[in-house]
Design a protein around this nucleic acid. Structure first.
Lengths: 129, 129
DNA sequence: TTCAATAGTTCTGTTTTTGCGAATTAAAGA
DNA sequence: TCTTTAATTCGCAAAAACAGAACTATTGAA
């Protein structure tokens, strides 16, 4: 598990940020990180294959949305909220305010799917999660 | 030029909206519609092939971002701002506030490109622009 | 009415992404 | 060292993006 690439916050464009957020799975990840703080990938795996989730985290990381640090055998991800707030004032708060929380199933693992659209591309390279 | 499909505003998801906005060309289109009001596709064609632009407008339209009406030989596009404000309060304003305007070239056609990332998919079908 | 011009769309082929299962790597602990 | 857990990478099939070429619709002459 090698160290991961994190773009400098001033390098990220609004389009690439929105692109990263334009997927229901990734949006749900962001919502949970905002709500629950730092989380390992594994705590969000429900309903999505690991390899796919790894891809989504990579997209989020490369778009500057999340920061990942190694911690033993897992990787802890957190929102780069303060940095994003500095780069795009008000954007994340406005966004988090309108994310409708995925229907909560009491005490259960939550299905990350359910949204209806949003896929995309990137132009960068390194891996993730 | 047949009539176009416009989703009901309550049908659109945040993810699909963000997906549509997650492309530098589309983001620039949105910025200009917000700034200049209703515009034909042709007024935004600079630097992007017609067929590609048509695709981008289709994505925006199907994501509920723009409304298109026929007017003679052209199609006039406008932001569905009020509806979007109703569905996702504050989101578009927050977004428009942080779009950095493409470098203005005085009196010239503006190159729509220049951003660095953001592509995506959709799950719908009908055409556009 | 017929022709030409303009605005957009659709078609088609190429390239890029995505999503997922399978195999792999890394770290931690018996 | 062997196992378990966590996550990445590989490889393939399906989908989408892009852009050029061809097509359709509308307008405005001639």
């Amino acid at each position: 598990m090698r160290e991961l690439f994190h773009p400098k916050i001033e390098q990220i464009s609004l389009a690439s940020l929105l692109y990263a957020l334009g997927d229901p799975v990734r949006l749900e990840i962001v919502r949970r990180l905002a709500e629950q703080g730092e989380q390992p990938c594994s705590s969000l795996c429900c309903g999505v294959p690991k390899s796919t989730l790894s891809h989504h985290f990579k997209v989020l990381r490369e778009a500057g949305v999340v920061f990942s640090r190694k911690e033993g055998t897992q990787r802890l991800n957190s929102l780069r909220k303060a940095e994003l707030d500095g780069r795009f004032p008000g954007l994340m708060d406005g966004l988090l305010a309108v994310i409708d929380p995925a229907p909560p199933r009491i005490g259960a693992t939550i299905d990350l799917l359910g949204g209806q659209a949003g896929r995309g591309r990137e132009k960068r390279s390194p891996p993730h999660c």
